[in-house]
Amino acid sequence: MFIAWRDLRFAKGRFALLGGVIALMTLMVVLLTGLTAGLGAASVSAVEALPADHIAFQEPAEGQEPAFATSELPGTSVAELGALPGVDTAHGMGVSTARLNVGGGSAAVNLIGTDPSLYPDREDGTDPGAGEVAVTAELAETHGLAPGSTVDLNGRSLTVTAIVDTTTLNHLPVVYLPLATWQELASTDTITAVALTGDPGETRGAVTLTREDAYGAVGGYSSEQGSLTLMRGLLLGVSVLIVGAFFTVWTMQRSGDLAVVRAIGAGRGYLLRDALGQALAVLVLGSAVGGAVAAGLGALAARAVPFVLDAQTVGVPVASMIAVGLLGAAVCVRRTTTVDPLTALGAAR
């Protein structure tokens, strides 16, 4: 990188401009990644927290996908699915939205009626029995709830017996309650789904998804994640074009210099390594700055919006930016290998 470092110092303005653009693109990709992860967690963290390997839903109509909002299974399906070879445990789940009233306030919540063994870790209190509920820590904090408090769900008064770790489903806080209590509130003897441990294999009358695949059964999750992922992809694509365009012009501008270096005996590999090293240096620096600024902004954003700030949501997009930028640069700087040293002679320059 003998020439590369000196070029970087000599053409500071041009490389600072490119580095700034890379930093800006990295900033946007990191922020979008954190937001995607945050929105994803707000959508499905309750499903993610289920200690289950698979979730069985009602077989959807043709052309439709399984969904918590539309699935309805008979209560007997829990025993039927639990009896399948390979299944260790089966617990029925009822999922619905409800209006929670407490004191003078109210909130939309998702009810998950199921066995307490499927609830998130308990922070306080005891598992709820009939006519009792467990609320998540964030919901408890927002409404000042504690074990012994009373809440009104869909017009029925229930006692809070436990505070559990915070989860959300479809961006709403979750209230956990026994399945029988959920069925009473929903005025039904059916259930929404069955949470299974083990591997059920083929199931009849129900479609079984892995827990991760079941994220798609949460309304809006797939389209929300798909949109944000597409935006990140487009940003990375634009970054490739920007880096590629810069290094195309840069390589063309210095083709005369490269011809001289070839003429004095430098091999093609020498020039290629130098050029790629230069691109890598700019990409690493620009991406690191962008990633650092994004981490700072993300920490602020996390106070107001769903935003996940961790090594993965920062590190992966930064690494992706470097990788795709290097790809764009590699395509363009390979021209350095085709520079003809003959052009260093005569009046060709």
Binding site: I3, R6, D7, R9, F10, A11, G256, D257, V260, V261, R262, A263, I264, G265, A266, G267, A344, L345, G346, A347, R349
Partner: peptide
């Protein structure tokens, strides 16, 4: 040939042809 140029041949080009950043 690259190696031969490095080790046994010296070039002086028209208009010097020096690298601007060096």
């Amino acid at each position: 040939r690259d190696r031969l140029r490095r080790e046994r041949i010296g070039f002086v080009f028209q208009q010097a042809n020096l690298l601007a950043s060096l």
